[in-house]
Every structure is written in C-alpha cells, then in structure tokens.
Amino acid sequence: MFTYFSTFITGLNEVVSDALKKSVSSVRIEQILDGLIVYKTNVNPRQIRELRFFNNSFVLLETVRGNVSDDTLKKLVDKVTGVKIQIPVEKRTSFRIMFSKENQPVSVEPKILQSLEKKFASKDLSVNRTSSGVELLFLARSDGYGFFGLRLTRHGDYKKTLHPGELRPELANLLCCLSDPTQDDVFLDPFAGYGAIPIERAVSFPYKRIYAGDIVPNLVSELKQKASKLGKRFIIGQLDATKLNTFSDSSISKIVTDPPWGIYSSGKNFD
C-alpha cells in the first residue's frame, strides 16, 4: 500500500475528499489540510497521475510536524538525512532534489544538497539537476507541516497555457464532480467561455449529451476547434444565457457554469 499526498485548490477540502473517495477504491484519508491531502491506497502511481482534480501528486516518503515558528524545512531535511528511505522507481533513471517553502522554490546550502544527492544516488538513480527523470521535493508549509515526496505530476504554466479568466482544469473538474455526474445527464454550460467546464465534463465524466454556448462568437468558434481536436462530440453554439427558451422544460438535467463575475462587478446593468 502506498501513501500519497496531493495538493489542490485551497478552500475545497470537503469537495476534494469526496472526489477522492469516489475516484479511488479502498482509499483511506490520513490527513487533510487546507490545500493538501494525505491518503493511503493500493492504487498504483499511474492511476494517481490520472486524478485531474489535484494540482500535483507525490508518493509520500517522509513528513514532519513543527510549530509555525519552527524552521520546518530544516527540520524535514534533518529527519530525512537521518533515516533510511527507499525511492520507489520502476526503472533506472536520474533524479534531482528541489525545495519549496510556502509555495515558493528556495535553495539550500550546496553542502546540504550534495549530501542529500549522495544519500539517494545509486546504480538505479543518478544525479541530474537540469533534466532529471524524477524529482524529489522537500515541501515546507506555513502551518509547520513538512512533506518529502517523489513527484508524480506537474501541471504546466497556466499563465502560458490559459487565457485570462479561464478556469483551471482542476477547478472545472471539481465543479463537475459537485453535479454528481451520471451517464444519463443532459448537461449545459450557458457561459462556456473558453470551454473549461464542458471540455472537462466530456473528458472525465459520463454523459448522454452536452450543450455548451456563449454569447461571444469568437469564443464559440474556438471552443468548436478545441472539441474537434479532442475528438469529443457535443453541441456548441452561440447562446444568450438570459434567453434559454431554445431548450424545452425539463430537457436539461445538469447545469454547471462559471458566470462572468468580473463583468457583473464592473457596475454594468443587466435586465
């Protein structure tokens, strides 16, 4: 049985806990903090990588708990240095060691890094600081908790891959989870925008039919192109969310959407 820890969007502890229980068989949640969950399961790492509602996931190798005033990173490094830890890799590869303090990458003294690299180097693991096969992460939180793990996933730089205001895939996935998806759902997103929600529903969950629309023609065209590239078929068209009379009563079973709150808060009036 593996122990994992995964990070997620803060403030969604209960939603993430429920999503994990539904997605992973025989899971036992050991600990849940704001934005981080620790759990045990017989599921192998490949399946954990496929959980789209997490930001990043790791095999847990060691952990510490200190006071908020403690130097958690130093405490974690000291503990890892003093115990024997087996790195679970499936084949010969290279590794690098990274350090994070309160969600920001940090450096440590060269002699500390070299000592840790020497500790974990073996015939199956060689050091490569620039283009490694696996990454070992020391993560220190502001609440005094520290985690050392083998990284399983890394999402891309959303500043480069997402448009301004576009939902992150993890959040879109969790919103779909909240709708309790079934294979009989007729699903609608009337404020589809760049398509994060309907695409996530089509990729990750069962459905009977999906409708997605937006009032902006360019967004509709872009969403059609995205759906085509993914090989997912759902009904996309220009749609005014204030006038949904094109749909008959009771024809839609689930609506999940992300209204343009920024526009509403700008002071414009809508009838």
Rank of each mutant, 00 (worst) to 15 (best):
I32D: 00
Y145H: 13
P217W: 03
K118T: 11
Y211M: 07
R92P: 10
V89A: 02
F191P: 06
F147K: 05
M1I: 07
L12A: 06
K75Q: 11
V15H: 14
S253N: 04
E62D: 13
S69H: 13
P110C: 08
G11Y: 01
E117L: 08
S266C: 03
T7A: 05
F138W: 03
H155I: 15
E90T: 15
V256I: 03
Q86D: 15
S107T: 15
F120R: 03
F247C: 03
L150Q: 06
V186E: 05
M98S: 13
A121M: 10
I32T: 09
Q238C: 10
S251F: 03
L20T: 05
I32Y: 01
I252F: 09
P259A: 06
M1A: 12
T41M: 01
D143R: 04
L36I: 08
L73I: 06
S142Y: 09
D157L: 11
E30Q: 14
K79G: 01
I263S: 09
S248D: 14
S122A: 07
F147D: 02
S26Q: 13
V256T: 00
S142C: 09
S221F: 14
P190G: 00
F53E: 01
D78T: 11
T10V: 08
N103Y: 09
P169Y: 04
G262F: 03
Y145V: 09
A196Y: 00
K111D: 11
Y4A: 09
Q225A: 11
K224D: 07
T242K: 14
R141A: 09
P198C: 01
T246F: 12
V186P: 05
K224P: 07
K21L: 12
T257Y: 01
K243H: 12
V220N: 02
E30K: 11
V108C: 09
F2Q: 07
D78S: 10
K40N: 11
T257F: 05
V80P: 00
G149P: 00
A192D: 04
L188K: 02
L174F: 07
A140T: 04
E200Q: 06
P190H: 06
Y264N: 13
R233C: 15
S115P: 08
L76D: 01
R168P: 02
G66Q: 10
G156Y: 09
V16R: 04
A140I: 02
K160S: 11
E50T: 14
